[in-house]
Design a protein around this nucleic acid. Structure first.
Lengths: 148, 148
DNA sequence: TAAAACATGCAACATCATTGCAAATATATG
DNA sequence: CATATATTTGCAATGATGTTGCATGTTTTA
């Protein structure tokens, strides 16, 4: 393995992978690095582009799946037949995500941002419904694109 | 056209189509009927199954697209690479949906239900973010599956 | 009822996702 | 530090999903 990643960041990445019992491979390191340096969420296609297709599509799929299972990233629902993945900032554990923050999709720059400090509010469900998790996606114009 | 749909329902369906300036075709009638008799949301695949593939895949795609454009159904975000469509109960207009109700996905029966009476609460966004629409998906156990 | 407008089905194609398996890489062990 | 074991990767094949153009069929209009 031979990457141009700053030592600190590299240590952080290795730390995350080890903590989750994952072996350190070039693909996992590079993909995790993408998430760490990107404020927005990433799709499978984004990752392929940003890594210049250095890895097989299949590897990317499997890496994302592994990361979701381990609680390193979480999935963000979309209405366009894609899945977005966002870094779990807090304390997600394998199989148990605590990603109850609001996601923001900008209609202009099209970025999806995790608003880690905005938690999804509780809602009152009809009798008989038992909630376990909740996701919320807000669309509009982001901080950079507020020309409107 | 020759269907076994009760007269009242048929009138309702024709009414919806006419109100939206759509011609009355067998495909549109049957697909709209599915939505009216189903409490849950439907995916493209669901519709193909429930109509026993009576219509070409393309027709189903185009019908759903038309319904979304006219405000007859709305799209529901998912994390599984599919799009779900739910009937717009209220007063959606072409190009302008008012589907700000909560969607519920049951972890057991896997149905997605529009909770038309539960509106998506407003949240406070960080400075600079301008919200336009909001979607919310709650997962858990539904009224029928509350064995837990 | 005929003409015009519109919707459908087919075919071809493009994209996206999954699986099995052999080769390569990382980790554990002596 | 070298080797054995376990894990991960890439390739190939396949399947699922979504899109487009165009000829045909159906609905609506006049």
């Amino acid at each position: 393995m031979d990457l141009v990643i700053h030592q600190d960041k590299m240590n952080q990445i290795i730390d995350i992978l080890k903590k989750n019992g994952l072996s350190i491979t070039e693909g996992r390191v590079q993909i995790l690095e993408l998430f760490l340096q990107n404020e927005g969420a990433l799709s499978h296609a984004d990752i392929e582009k940003k890594t210049s297709a250095a890895f097989d599509r299949v590897t990317v799929y499997r890496t994302l799946q592994t990361f979701v299972e381990k609680g390193i990233v979480h999935q963000i629902p979309t209405t366009d037949n894609s899945i977005l993945y966002g870094l779990c900032k807090d304390h997600c554990e394998a199989g148990h995500h605590h990603d109850e923050h609001v996601h923001f999709v900008c209609n202009n720059c099209n970025k999806t941002i995790c608003l880690d400090d905005v938690t999804v509010p509780k809602v009152n469900l009809p009798k008989g419904f038992k909630p376990l998790q909740a996701a919320m996606v807000v669309k509009g114009f982001c901080d950079d694109c507020k020309f409107n």
